[in-house]
Write a protein that binds this DNA or RNA. Structure first.
Length: 532
RNA sequence: GUCCGGUUCGUCUAGGGGUUAGGACACCGCCCUUUCACGGCGGCAACACGGGUUCAAAUCCCGUACCGGAUACCA
């Protein structure tokens, strides 16, 4: 039997981190078993469902690359079938018409339900509905007379529902604890449990993998399967993802941190986030943390799923820990260790969005004529595809998100970058001599190197033509430092701040080389930083 | 209230009768270094509690506590 699983979100908001994980687990299970991963939009709550939300959920799934099989099923399209099923159950006397007038919920719905349940405690049997055993004749007559009614499932008086959950094990529940659930509202609207069972049957779902909050629904749904004479699928309930206080994780309370789009927009790599999500409530029982998608598919199994809820750990008022540390670490880990050519396609849109992109960065668009790249490849023309790749590779080591390429890495791609006040203070203002030394160093570079066509009145006649490479730069900077009787760090750090605007980054020699002679010289002469 | 589920470092987790209870993140320290949020080394830090079973319990059983979920003519 081919495995068929489904992810069935209700479109009442964006793709929540918990739903995303449910989708991921379904996806992994389907792919690991050679089964099908189906998508069903449970849009039967007309008042709350929106198309925008459906789109947002699909966007989220697309971003995570959880591609589904077959056409998307919209639950609302099958309402007639659901009604028909309810009527069939009625005809089979597995369900009955309840003529009790509908009571509208007011105020806090959840609290009201709990209150009502408490009040009913011990007072009455959950199934002692006066209409439960109404004769067919009278029921038909009242219905024919136009009296409104809901259709309720007739839960047997004796016995219990039981199923073997793939995660939680044997689950049993006395019929006594289950109310005769409404299948069809008095306005003819089919309700969730009926709709889900009908659709799961229709879609030939073999495994229902969903949140643990559905555990009691499962008992109700099994009752419907039994009434219908259909063998229920296998159920696997997932532990829930909680807020740091172990409470419910919600948009109301926690905002954007729970939305998948937040991570996409914050410069997360889908692969990294997927990896993080996979480890929230599941483990392969080993010490590995970084898994490629194919490894996840290969290793995923229902027995690796935990029974206890997991905390999504973030700190609302701490910008550095605004989301789970491990998610951030994992993203950084992906950025700095994945093959650079795989990273490039993600950096490009980021630079484009920040208007830092140049077409020359694209592979294959280089113009050979403009290249004065040394034969050994050490000094690359700034702006070439090779330069771009090398630069991305250099600066990614200390980056956490794709956003960093356009923010903290801005100075590599544009002349228009900001100076960090603390860095200026620490590395420039503190050493006033640098104000003259650095432009002097620029002249020195210009005289010593010839990587680029620099036209300047300061170029000496008969200069030695050396490539602007780390090794050569080091010699020059060291000599310069000695002449000035200062420490290498003073020059290097001053140059770093002037050239990149910040106090941190890769080796300064590689920064010089990466920026190239022309830009290095220009920036060393710049006095802008001193004015801030 | 009732039903159901859960409980190993701050967080994610490994381990499921005998372990110095392992790893990762975070945090702290040292090293590397011209700087650094890279890297290297190290440190802090956990079996909820009480009973039982057993030669031996984090691990099995029972209870308690706490946390969570559910309880709807919502999904």
């Amino acid at each position: 039997m081919t495995v068929r699983v489904r992810f069935a979100p209700s479109p009442t908001g964006y793709l929540h981190i918990g739903s995303a994980r449910t989708a991921l687990f379904n996806y992994l299970y389907a792919r690991s078993t050679g089964g099908k991963f189906l998508l069903r939009i449970e849009d039967t709550d007309i008042a709350r469902s929106t198309e925008e939300s459906t789109r947002s959920i699909l966007d989220g799934l697309a971003w995570l690359e959880l591609d589904h099989d077959e056409d998307i099923v919209f639950q609302s399209d099958s309402a007639d079938k659901h009604r028909e099923t309810a009527r069939k159950l009625l005809a089979d006397r597995k369900a009955y018409r309840d003529f009790t007038p509908k009571v509208e919920a007011t105020g806090d719905v959840k609290a009201g339900i709990a209150e009502r349940a408490r009040a009913a405690q011990g007072v009455k049997n959950m199934r002692d509905n006066p209409y439960r055993d109404l004769s067919t004749g009278e029921s038909d007559a009242r219905a024919a007379a136009g009296e409104p009614f809901a259709i309720r499932l007739k839960v047997p008086m004796e016995g219990r529902t039981a199923f073997d959950d793939a995660v939680y094990g044997i689950q049993e529940r006395d019929y006594d604890d289950t109310e005769d659930l409404v299948l069809l509202r008095s306005d003819g609207h089919p309700l969730y449990n009926l709709a889900v069972v009908c659709d799961d049957i229709e879609m030939q779902i073999t495994h229902v993998i969903r949140g643990q909050d559905h555990l009691t629904n499962t008992h109700k749904q099994i009752l419907i399967y039994e009434a219908l004479g259909v063998v229920p699928p296998i159920f696997a309930h997932l532990p829930l993802i909680m807020a740091p206080n172990k409470g419910k994780l919600s948009k109301r309370k926690h905002g954007e941190v729970v939305s998948m789009t937040t991570y996409r927009d914050a410069g997360f790599l889908a692969a990294a986030f997927r990896n993080f999500l996979a480890l929230l409530g599941w483990s392969a029982g080993e010490e590995q943390e970084i898994y490629t998608l194919s490894e996840l598919i290969e290793k995923f199994s229902l027995d690796g799923i935990h029974r206890s809820n997991a905390v999504f750990n973030f700190h609302e008022n701490d910008p550095r820990h605004w989301t789970d540390d491990k998610a951030q670490w994992m993203n950084a880990e992906y950025i700095r260790t994945m093959p650079v050519e795989q990273l490039l396609p993600f950096v490009r849109p980021e630079l484009k969005a920040a208007k830092l992109w140049r077409d020359e960065y694209e592979d294959g668009t280089r113009t050979p004529s403009s290249a004065n790249v040394a034969e050994d490849g050490v000094s690359l023309e700034v702006g070439s595809a090779e330069w771009y790749e090398k630069t991305v590779d250099l600066i990614r080591a200390r980056f956490f998100t794709l956003k960093d390429f356009s923010s903290r890495g801005r100075s590599y791609f544009s002349e228009d970058y900001d100076f960090d006040a603390a860095a200026v203070e620490k590395n420039l203002t503190k050493f006033p001599d640098l104000k003259t030394w650095l432009p002097e160093l620029a002249n020195r570079f210009e005289n010593e190197f010839s990587e680029e066509r620099v036209s300047s009145p300061n170029v000496r006649e008969g200069f030695t033509s050396k490539p602007f490479t780390e090794e050569n730069i080091e010699t020059v900077v060291k000599a310069f430092t000695e002449e000035k009787g200062t420490k290498l760090g003073v020059i290097m750090n001053g140059a770093r701040t002037l050239l990149t605007g910040v106090a941190v980054g890769p080796s300064m020699l590689s920064v010089f080389e990466t920026l190239g002679l022309k830009r290095t010289v220009m920036r060393l002469r710049s006095q802008v930083a001193w004015k801030t």
